[in-house]
């Protein structure tokens, strides 16, 4: 573990909690893409199947359980409890255009042609594009609630910090995982436009609205 990964995991956990809390407190999922949340639930489910096969540390196991349970709770709130507030018209990204190519790529490019490893690879590739329905929805509605922008900032920051974690681990441990690094780069690049708007608008107290 290193400082970058520590802060990154904290930022990721914060994002997940911020979103769950926002939906629960406001009893509304307006402006939230249910499709992205379903993709994240799939990402965690396919990535953390090793909960059943290997134990790394109490931290590792507990964080995985927290991520999985919070993501399913979020999906439940969006599609069941507060489904009346779900804005399906603006959450119209065709996720099959993400899942199918990502699935194919995971079968073609992976570290080991074993089921758990292919699922892990699928999860890594899927996570890099899972936020697209949410970003697409914001571009369609033309705005985002401030709490949603904080959620997105923490979510984007987490994988950006993982990039530094991988630099650290390469330098100090000689460890690197090309699949995770390339996917992490793609994932972080997809947030760049949002990061710019977040820093130039939200941090100045303005509301995030498009076109800028």
């Amino acid at each position: 573990m290193n400082i970058f990964r520590g802060i990154a995991d904290f930022s990721h956990l914060a994002a997940i909690i911020i979103l769950l809390h926002k939906i629960w407190k406001s009893r509304s999922c307006a402006g939230i893409s249910g499709k992205s949340q379903i993709l994240f639930a799939i990402v965690f489910t396919t990535r953390y199947l090793d909960l059943l096969t290997s134990f790394i540390s109490l931290y590792n196991t507990s964080m995985k359980v927290i991520y999985i349970s919070c993501s399913y709770a979020t999906v439940y709130l969006i599609y069941m409890k507060f489904r009346a507030t779900y804005d399906g018209n603006h959450d119209s990204f065709r996720v099959e255009f993400l899942v199918v190519p990502v699935g194919g790529l995971a079968v073609l490019i992976n570290h080991d042609f074993a089921l758990l490893e292919i699922l892990w690879t699928f999860s890594i590739y899927l996570e890099s594009v899972a936020i697209l329905p949410q970003l697409f929805m914001i571009s369609k509605t033309g705005e985002a609630e401030t709490i949603t922008t904080h959620y997105l900032f923490c979510l984007g920051l987490y994988r950006a910090l993982y990039l530094f974690n991988w630099i650290w681990r390469f330098y100090f441990e000689g460890f690197f995982d090309m699949i995770a690094i390339v996917a992490g780069l793609v994932q972080t690049v997809l947030y760049c436009d949002f990061f710019y708007l977040y820093v130039t608008k939200v941090l100045k107290g303005k509301k995030l609205s498009l076109p800028a």
Binding site: R5, D9, H12, R47, D50, S54, I56, N60, M63, K64, Y67, H111, D112, A114, E117, W120, Y162, N165, D177, A180
Partner: peptide
Amino acid sequence: KAKLLLHDEL
């Protein structure tokens, strides 16, 4: 290459 890959990151 039946590498048993242990992914230690979240």
